[in-house]
């Protein structure tokens, strides 16, 4: 009796461990979390059209790249930064990539812009604002740091008195949404979030790149579908790829 009971528990545990992942879907996509607003819609449309089941897992590009490098069974990787793909190519994990959408840096404020902020110049001049940015360890933060350094500022210096360097683009948006920060350095596409307004910053175009990790017909089909999914991306505030 005891033996059976123990064996049953063991089997259940093994079963549970074995079916926790997204293996049931035909395609597994790892995508930079800032693409979520557009990608959810685009993927849903693709599933309807093709009948192919797709599971998308969102996280920071650097985290996803590490997962791919560690052998996570993914079909497609959408990265917000080319350096991750170059690193994976050096290890022969991806062959090539194309862009599917673009984004740019923006000043995030609450929807009604209670402080009447007009843009980057004002943010850099005023000293009564609570400002957050992303840490340079994540793509958004790296882009933000590059921009600020060009303008003669720094992320961690005392000149801007930033309140926090967050670990992800969503955390920056969340701090502004909560009202904890008056201003955040985020993506233009974050303006698509309820309660947020994004003021464009003149700066470089940031490309989202898509790569096939595991070659398959269904995978190639989704890649070409997303390359032409400009409407979904434009609706969520992204530029064309």
């Amino acid at each position: 009796m005891t033996r059976w009971f123990g064996a049953a528990i063991l089997c259940l545990a093994l079963l549970a461990a074995g079916c926790g992942g997204p293996e049931d879907a035909e395609l597994t996509v790892l995508a930079a979390s800032s693409t979520r607003l557009a990608l959810d819609d685009a993927v849903e449309a693709f599933e309807r059209e093709s009948g192919i089941d797709v599971a998308v897992s969102y996280a920071g590009s650097q985290t996803l790249a590490a997962q791919v490098a560690a052998g996570f069974p993914a079909d497609i990787f959408i990265s917000a930064d080319v350096v991750h793909l170059e690193r994976l190519r050096a290890d022969d994990l991806v062959a090539n990539w194309t862009s599917i959408a673009s984004n740019s840096l923006a000043i995030l404020v609450a929807d009604d812009n209670p402080l009447g902020i007009t843009g980057l110049d004002e943010v850099l001049l005023r000293d009564d604002l609570v400002i957050v940015a992303a840490d340079p360890a994540v793509p958004l933060g790296a882009h933000t740091e590059r921009l600020l350094v060009q303008l003669g500022h720094s992320l961690d210096g005392d000149d801007l008195r930033l309140a926090s360097l967050e670990a992800s683009a969503q955390a920056v948006a969340a701090k502004v949404l909560d009202g904890e920060a008056d201003v955040g350095f985020g993506f233009l596409s974050d303006g698509g979030l309820d309660g947020l307004q994004a003021l464009a910053i003149d700066g470089p175009e940031l490309l989202y790149l898509i790569a096939l990790v595991r070659d398959s017909d269904a995978g190639a089909q989704l890649v070409s579908y997303l390359q032409d999914a400009d409407t979904e991306f434009a609706a969520a505030g992204f530029g064309p790829g």
Binding site: V132, D135, D156, L162, A163, S164, L165, E166, A167, A171, K175, E180
Partner: peptide
């Protein structure tokens, strides 16, 4: 992270 944020030397 949620309440204090994350800034080198301060939080």
């Amino acid at each position: 992270l949620t309440f204090a944020g994350s800034f080198p030397g301060r939080t």
